[in-house]
Design a binder for these strands. Sequence first.
DNA 1: CGCCTTTGACCAGCGC
DNA 2: GCGCTGGTCAAAGGCG
Length: 201
Amino acid sequence: MSSTSQAMLNQGLFEDQDMPSQMGFYTSPPNWTFPPLASENLSTMVTKHQDVTSLLGEFEAASVERSSNNIWPWGEVNQYVGSKRCLGDDQLGVAAMKMKKVKARRKVREPRFCFKTLSDVDVLDDGYKWRKYGQKVVKNTLHPRSYYRCTQDNCRVKKRVERLAEDPRMVITTYEGRHVHSPSHDMEGSEGSSHLNNFFW
DNA sequence: CGCCTTTGACCAGCGC
DNA sequence: GCGCTGGTCAAAGGCG
């Protein structure tokens, strides 16, 4: 069975260090069941979703301040997702304002991309191979957060996976960094690769 | 046997 | 300065 087939809805928050304007809220179209990881695809996503321009504006405002300080609101993004502010216009604005107050927690600026997915399984099959390196019960959440690292050599991409406390059906996945290689699932050349390719792009 | 998950310990950032 | 919290490490065990 394919875990990806469980995914039905994606909504989330993204940001990209190379493109300061690329930070905002997105809702995936019906035919998108998984978010892109490369910056160019993020750009495409924004273009396709002008209907969320007002929401995006809130985050761009926060992004400007962040850029001027050359600081990434590292922890705030996670808190934003964990507290389920991915949904709701008013809450989104509040979250954006809150981000302005956050202090620098980390100087390493890896592009991050987080989203929520309605799924029965915790770990969605995104075509890459991951190794779990930690699990932590975070405050105010019922479900533990899992930490994964890409198994590919020289690829430092990490991802965090957790479930929403109020709606355990929703899986929050946060990617950090960019893959320096192609997805590894198609190495077998089996039928599985075809459906996965169709799933992603 | 190699790769993976589990899990407790450790560390660093942040708020008070 | 201290305690809390999130993120990472690494040893141990499991599984194919």
